[in-house]
Design a protein around this nucleic acid. Structure first.
Lengths: 132, 132
DNA sequence: CCAAATCCTAGCTGAGAACCGGGGTATACT
DNA sequence: AGTATACCCCGGTTCTCAGCTAGGATTTGG
């Protein structure tokens, strides 16, 4: 996603091969992840020769939370039936647990791809300085 | 743990059979969980006949975070070697991720067994009122 | 001693993440 | 049009691990 955020400004799509090579991910597997992201609307695809993937929105409009929820198969349902059989103990613990999740999500929500790209650039420049 | 927090005031140990029956957990499995909790010092055990388990500390001195970290096998190490091979991208994402974990942990840290017991009691009384 | 309880160690199982492969479809370029 | 290049879809394989099962050793109260 970060690579695509960079390529977004250049308005040229990224190809699976490139992304896979850059991050040492098997390209066949990366293809599935990208399909999931596409179905969620986080990225768009261009088929055919010279095709590839592009962000679905501006880099500052995509949060880390959206990306993670997407590929981690966000299933926030199925709790309906268990609510009827849920014990009091489970309910009490679950409330605090969800409160904790909410706190974590707030952090991830605040973090956009643009933020991450900027931090990455800073880190990369620091690496160069250490090398000298 | 909540059951033991209640029994802690009565100063009598809880046995695996009782705990398992109360919460529909296979006792053989519960035994392993309790062993983990014991090794972490969260609970103490009394062997032999009339034995059982007791909290290792007062109910208000044990947080939900400790319990969860304990049974979820908190492995916060092993990141040493990967730090050397960690890419810049992973590092940037991991920082935000850990920040989110920290936020969640803060919530769980604030929640003690005593708090949960009190909330449970309130909920149970509400259930009774609904029943009438 | 004996019954009752915890302790220790090893293995089984189902679900899900990571990964691979074959064949199909759309698009750009010549 | 034809072809090469990419994405698209679906099914299967491997590996990990939480959840669970099983057998036997050890400690303690009566």
């Amino acid at each position: 996603m970060l690579e695509m955020a960079d390529s977004y400004q250049r308005a040229e799509p990224m190809q699976i091969r490139q992304l896979a090579a850059l991050h040492n991910i098997p390209d066949r597997y990366l293809e599935q992840l990208l399909a999931t992201l596409r179905r969620a609307g986080l990225i768009r695809s261009q088929r055919g020769a010279k095709g590839g993937y592009l962000l679905g929105r501006e880099p500052w409009q995509i949060t880390l939370l959206e990306v993670i929820d997407c590929i981690e198969g966000l299933e926030a349902k199925a709790g309906e039936k268990s609510l009827t059989t849920e014990t009091v103990e489970r309910a009490v613990v679950r409330e605090t647990w969800q409160e904790a999740c909410q706190a974590a999500n707030t952090v991830l929500q605040r973090c956009t791809l643009k933020d991450l790209c900027e931090r990455r650039q800073i880190k990369q420049q620091l690496d160069v300085m250490y090398y000298i």
